[in-house]
């Protein structure tokens, strides 16, 4: 079943954020390194797109590219476009980009402690974020800061506004980061592994909070994660990345019910399911792990980048030419030369 929110791009209004053929490169001692190679997606208001991948997949570099936060001099967007409401952000000045961040795009990261200043109270830091982007009095900004703390579910917000970051727990600090990100009612929230490192009961609270805030504000969320459980819970659409490329994109239900790219199939097989026990059947049923290791971006395989680890690999077809993205169904794209055969074989097992 496809929910309305997961409809393919063309079916609804213009996307808030539209990324086309994004290429991001880093200059290293050993030459140029292509960390993201041709990522495209549309993000619509009120929708959550999850970008999922393992280390080195390029998921975080994709989000840094959109935010214009690539490390200066080393990293650069080498191709493609990143359009916010139709206006390209690639190549605009840092001054203008600063206005976009905070006003139109809010951000939250994995480690809230490193994003907060230890020497100011959280209330001051939220007020500062508001004053940077809005022409209001300091008094009004402080009042708004307390409101925001309340909105993100911090008990006794007036009192907590006077606390310093170290006096708060990890979960509370992430709520403060969300309050800062929301300070200017952004239309896009970029959340890069925002619950990684939090305990599961706290993670559940933060995911619940993001869902509620999205329902209230209609903001679009770009959610970067490695956790398929979190994806299943929060995403409308999913983009799977491997070795710098997008290898599959689909509505969340389709991705979990009919994964087409062998890598996605492998990732799902690697994740223990509820009710799965190695002992249940007596003999140990093994997880369907993906063999081999994640390739280094310095030595990417020829042809399909996944072929050395793929159980469906065909010599020649998969080892020489890089497969293009193919449409497996409306709104469902897959980068695999053999996806039809794979689908038939998987259906049999």
């Amino acid at each position: 079943m496809m929910t309305d929110r997961a409809l393919p791009p063309s079916a609804k209004t213009a996307p808030v954020l539209q990324v086309r053929d994004l290429v991001t490169e880093f200059t290293t001692d050993e030459g140029r390194l292509r960390a993201v190679d041709g990522v495209s997606f549309d993000l619509h208001a009120g929708q959550t797109l999850a970008v999922v991948g393992e280390s080195g997949s390029g998921k975080s570099v994709t989000s840094l590219s959109v935010m214009g936060l690539l490390p200066a001099r080393i990293g650069r967007v080498a191709g493609g476009s990143i359009k916010l409401d139709g206006k390209d952000l690639v190549g605009i000045s840092e001054r203008r980009m600063q206005r976009v961040r905070g006003n139109d795009i809010g951000m939250i990261f994995q480690e809230p402690m490193t994003s907060l200043t230890p020497v100011y109270t959280v209330g001051d830091q939220i007020a500062e974020a508001i004053l940077t982007h809005r022409d209001i009095s300091r008094r009004a900004a402080r009042a708004r800061a307390v409101e925001l703390l309340e909105q993100v579910g911090i008990p006794e917000p007036k009192l907590r506004a006077r606390a310093y970051p170290h006096q708060l727990s990890g979960g509370m600090r992430q709520r403060v980061m969300i309050a800062i990100a929301l300070a200017c009612d952004p239309r896009v929230l970029i959340a890069d592994e925002p619950t990684t490192g939090l305990d599961v009961t706290i993670q559940a609270q933060i995911l619940e909070l993001l869902r509620r805030l999205q329902a209230e504000t209609g903001m679009a969320i770009l959610f970067i994660t490695h956790d398929l459980g979190v994806v299943a819970e929060i995403a409308d659409r999913v983009l799977v990345m491997y070795a710098g490329q997008m290898v599959e994109e689909a509505p969340v239900e389709a991705l979990f019910a009919q994964p087409r790219m062998p890598y996605t199939i492998g990732l799902l097989g690697s994740t223990p399911r509820p009710g799965a026990s190695a002992l249940a059947a007596g003999a140990a049923p093994r997880l369907r792990a993906i063999p081999g290791n994640i390739p280094s971006p310095r030595a990417l395989p020829q042809g399909c980048r996944f072929h050395p680890r793929c159980t469906h690999m065909r010599e020649g077809l998969c080892t020489t030419a890089a497969p293009p993205l193919d449409s497996a169904a409306p709104g469902h794209q897959v980068r695999c030369a053999r996806w039809r055969d794979v689908a038939t074989q998987e259906a049999r097992t």
């Binding site: 599961v200 009961t201 993670q203 559940a204 995911l207 956790d227 398929l228 459980g229 979190v230 994806v231 299943a232 819970e233 969340v252 239900e253 979990f256 799902l268 994740t271 399911r273 509820p274």
Partner: peptide
Amino acid sequence: LLSAAPVPVPGA
């Protein structure tokens, strides 16, 4: 704890 753990099944 069990109900908080995300499971890789949409809608579950």
